[in-house]
Design a protein around this nucleic acid. Structure first.
Lengths: 146, 146
DNA sequence: TGATTAAAAGACATCCGCATCTTTTATGGC
DNA sequence: GCCATAAAAGATGCGGATGTCTTTTAATCA
């Protein structure tokens, strides 16, 4: 619902890396994919995009892998949606009308706008670190629950 | 956003038929597709599903076409979502976790549940006839706006 | 420098939403 | 019964999301 698999996988990948940060090591895509029960190569592509967008850091070679950077924890979720799914979707009318807007609204415009605003507000205000307040061990386990 | 093109096309098709009901005639798929600027054959498939689900009536042959039945106007929008998109989507976790629920929630479960509930409530309470309260001519025009 | 390691990148494969076109079936008028 | 009409149904194609596999690039260490 709402977002793609890419978004869900990316968020879980970032959360997994963030949770292991204290171990001061790079996390490899093989480990992430295995722990989250997510397709390895597909996740690789997705994380590649996340790195390219500057939300994470990665290095190749021995002892390489993915790690956080200074922006990771304070990134709002909407930024991740932008990377994985794009933001165009928020401007599509449920009736698939091109010219649907406040001036020329479809019969569901007002109601959908209210829900969309609530969703956007939450995704703008919530950051990665906001999602890390639970018991870490339980949380790691829940991330892998498939 | 939220729903498929099929849903949007189906809803506009039903609304178009409902708006012309007073003319006491069957509306043909060619006319609907043309007026709504929607692919004719694709819309045909979609309306076929709507008829099969009992939300509309249709007859073949000369003077045939689509028309409302006794249930059309009082159908809640969620029923149309069920026909075109299915209701499974409402049970998919944004993090793509299979076992995400109130007992074992992902870190976004609570927030997403709130938004989902609001959307479901609106789609359960709103019926086709609820969408027909505007000026009809303006509304027909807006339906075709592409 | 050479070997090893791990991400980056590219080539495919699959499935589904979306769309088009053709054939079949049912209905009404003659 | 025959013809015309319009929906139903089937075949096919396209593109994007998802997923797999192979090759290339970069980093570390000996």
């Amino acid at each position: 619902m709402f977002f793609s698999k890419s978004f869900g996988y990316a968020l879980r990948g970032i959360l997994y890396i963030a949770l292991l940060q204290d171990e001061q090591r790079k996390i490899q895509i093989d480990e992430i994919a295995q722990k989250l029960s997510v397709p390895r190569h597909f996740l690789g592509k997705i994380m590649q995009g996340v790195v390219k967008a500057g939300l994470l850091q990665s290095t190749k070679g021995p002892y390489g892998g993915f790690s956080m950077n200074e922006t990771t924890l304070t990134t709002p979720l909407i930024k991740l949606v932008e990377i994985t799914d794009g933001l165009d979707q928020f401007n599509i009318c449920v009736l698939q009308l091109r010219n649907c807007n406040a001036v020329n609204p479809c019969p569901l415009h007002q109601e959908m706008e209210g829900i969309k605003t609530k969703l956007l507000l939450m995704f703008n205000q919530t950051t990665i670190v906001d999602l890390l307040n639970d018991n870490k061990k339980v949380f790691i386990k829940s991330l892998a629950t498939q």
